[in-house]
Design a protein around this nucleic acid. Sequence first.
DNA 1: TTCGGCATCCACCGAACGGTTGACGGGGAT
DNA 2: ATCCCCGTCAACCGTTCGGTGGATGCCGAA
Lengths: 216, 216
Amino acid sequence: MSIRVIVADDQEIARTGLTMILNAQPDIEVVGEAADGRRAVELARRLRPDVCLFDIRMPGLDGIEATRSLAGPNVDSPLAVVVITTFDLDEYIYAALRAGARGFLLKNAGADMLSHAVHAAANGDALIAPSITARLLEAFARTGSGSPPVRPIEVLTDREEQILVTVARGRTNNEIADEFHISLSTVKSHIASLMAKLGARNRVEIAMWAYETKRV
Amino acid sequence: MSIRVIVADDQEIARTGLTMILNAQPDIEVVGEAADGRRAVELARRLRPDVCLFDIRMPGLDGIEATRSLAGPNVDSPLAVVVITTFDLDEYIYAALRAGARGFLLKNAGADMLSHAVHAAANGDALIAPSITARLLEAFARTGSGSPPVRPIEVLTDREEQILVTVARGRTNNEIADEFHISLSTVKSHIASLMAKLGARNRVEIAMWAYETKRV
DNA sequence: TTCGGCATCCACCGAACGGTTGACGGGGAT
DNA sequence: ATCCCCGTCAACCGTTCGGTGGATGCCGAA
């Protein structure tokens, strides 16, 4: 019997690529696709696949949240979720693993890595991209404890996400205020909470974050 | 006879996705794939496809350079190249178009957009993602001229290049001054000339430029 | 040698940014 | 009905940034 998988990614190109690569494996079958987190969760609940493959960046419910609601600590019959993303930022990795992910891959992973990760997840094991594993171990060594040095990624609100992008495009606060028809104060509020949530010290670091997570 | 296409992208997932979506079209056939710019150019020279679909970000020779050497101003029998990228930043677009691209798409484009762009390129037309087109027109309107608002890249000095990177990493002027053991004034001088040369209005736009040109 | 480019520095000033505190209404959850 | 989060806004204040107009010394090319 083949491993039943669902794939969720907001980019049609990536979604098709993942699906095709997995379907090319003799013992893997993609039984569903979704373009956002909410539908991914619905689909997973309905189909109960052996493995869910989620992109982190998705509109609405992101991959982390989706993972949490399918494989989180308080879920009774958790599904196996493999999270995939373009950049290997620590915040994401820890958040994904804490959310219950059984795997963490980068989008530049090849077909081999991909199918290995799916097989591992289906077997109750977990596969993490080697480059990430190294940093994970290092992090464990640094803290000397069993708990990873997690900066809990706080989920950005819709408005914050919008502001984030404009900041990363080099807009000034005044320009942002005009663009969204809100006051300068409000823009500063949003940017303040962005800095707090992302741990950024200034707007350039906000822009950095946006770039590194391909939000620009 | 179907349209012969080659696809170049360093991410296997995206490459597979693009190939599958295009092969699903009755009159399009993907005749080759490449994972970096150099091989893409070789492949294109050998196969002479009707359309080349290039990602901008590729190791070695990037998509822009690859486009230039296949469709640039001084090429005698130019091929039709469609450039695709995740980012829709102006520098990329202009660079791609100046390099001779016959299309410019974002990676979040759907299958429709993709096949339309390939068809257009094969017919000697050009298709650009709507969101980008709007900004292009706006830019043309701003300059009021028929020539694209191309900014000739002035060469950065070594020092400027160094400062550029630190700015893009979110450092403040004071931190940069400490890091290089120079005065705050000097940092400001360099940043001023950076802004002048790059046409940036503030340091975030400097950071943008650094990210877009893979300097970070 | 003279000229220009580069890197260094200074002073001044207004604009933009970042931090803080507090406030208000709406909506969803309990 | 209550509470909390979100989005909105205000006032205030210090810091940082960006702009201007210089200055100096060094080096290499003309």
